[in-house]
Computed example of a mutant assay.
Amino acid sequence: MPPEQILRAYAEAVYARDTQALLALYHPHVTVYDLWEHWQYDGLNAWRGMIEGWFASLGEERVQVTFDDIRTHVTPDMALVHAFATYAGLSATGERLRAMNNRLSLPLARSGDQWLILHEHSSARRLRKRQGQPPPPGVNGHAEGRASPLPGAARPSGGITAGGRPGRCPRCAARTGGRA
């Protein structure tokens, strides 16, 4: 699989909530810098626990991941893929409920005839707020002014739970009022 195809496989596995397919994209010694409760996961087993919790928290919902501004740099033994990612929460009927944006950087290591994610680094755009004003749509993960599409039931840091209860947006710690 060419390095840029890893993003397609990632999006398909997330949409299908297929833990095994998603984990198959990662190197056994992966290190992940995430934006949720745990900022760092070391090793496939630690990352497996996060993915299982995330998928379990979705209930009937799905997450559609799309990528823009995909860039790659490939050498014989290593590759770098980075892109802007949009995570959109979809209802069981396919209605877009909310979305958030972040950046992904994926250094890949060659393993036989395939590429594996050796490191994943997620980051969000930092916003300087004007005093007393909420963030505008499309920043700090608030695409379309909505809260995170990743329910926080399995994420003790808060966020919108699978039942739509209020929480804290894990992207910017803004108070939310349930599903926006």
Rank of each mutant, 00 (worst) to 15 (best):
M78V: 14
A124E: 03
S148P: 04
A162D: 12
P151R: 02
G158E: 09
S123C: 10
I70R: 01
G89N: 07
E120C: 11
V32Y: 03
E95W: 00
A21M: 03
E37F: 13
P136H: 06
R71Y: 05
A79W: 00
A79Y: 01
S57Y: 01
R168D: 00
R71V: 15
G43K: 10
D18G: 02
R168P: 00
E120T: 14
R71K: 12
T66H: 01
H27T: 10
R165G: 13
D42P: 03
T66S: 15
N102D: 04
R98W: 12
D69M: 03
Y10H: 14
A88I: 09
H27R: 10
R128F: 12
N101K: 15
F55R: 05
R130Y: 02
D113P: 01
A173P: 01
E4T: 12
R126Q: 09
I70Y: 02
G59S: 06
Y26L: 08
A79P: 07
R48L: 12
Y10W: 15
R103F: 09
A83R: 00
C169I: 04
V81I: 06
R146A: 15
P156L: 07
M100A: 15
D42H: 11
L116Q: 07
L108K: 01
Y10R: 06
G158I: 13
T75P: 02
G53Q: 04
I160L: 13
H119N: 12
E144P: 01
V139W: 15
L106Q: 09
R155C: 15
H38Q: 14
A92E: 14
E60Q: 13
S91P: 07
S111Y: 03
P28Q: 05
P135W: 10
T75A: 08
M50T: 10
Y15W: 14
Q40V: 15
H73D: 12
R110I: 02
P156C: 05
H142W: 14
P149R: 08
W47N: 11
R62P: 05
A174K: 06
N140K: 06
L23V: 09
N102T: 08
F84A: 10
W36C: 03
T31A: 10
L116N: 01
T66P: 03
P28A: 04
T86L: 10
L116T: 07
L150V: 14
E52V: 13
A173M: 08
D42G: 08
L116S: 00
F67L: 10
G164P: 04
A143G: 00
T19S: 11
A9N: 09
A79I: 03
F84E: 07
P151W: 08
G158Y: 14
A9V: 08
Y10L: 12
R155F: 10
E60R: 10
R179F: 14
R179Q: 13
R126M: 03
D113Y: 00
R110N: 04
D34S: 15
T19E: 14
T72E: 08
H82C: 13
R168F: 11
V65I: 14
P135F: 09
E120L: 15
T31K: 09
L150E: 12
E60L: 12
G141Q: 10
R110A: 03
G89H: 06
S157V: 13
A154M: 05
Y15L: 15
E61N: 13
W115D: 07
A153P: 00
H121Y: 06
R175Q: 11
Q114R: 15
A79K: 01
S57V: 01
E95M: 09
G59Y: 07
V14E: 11
Q40P: 01
Q131D: 13
T93C: 08
H119P: 00
R128A: 11
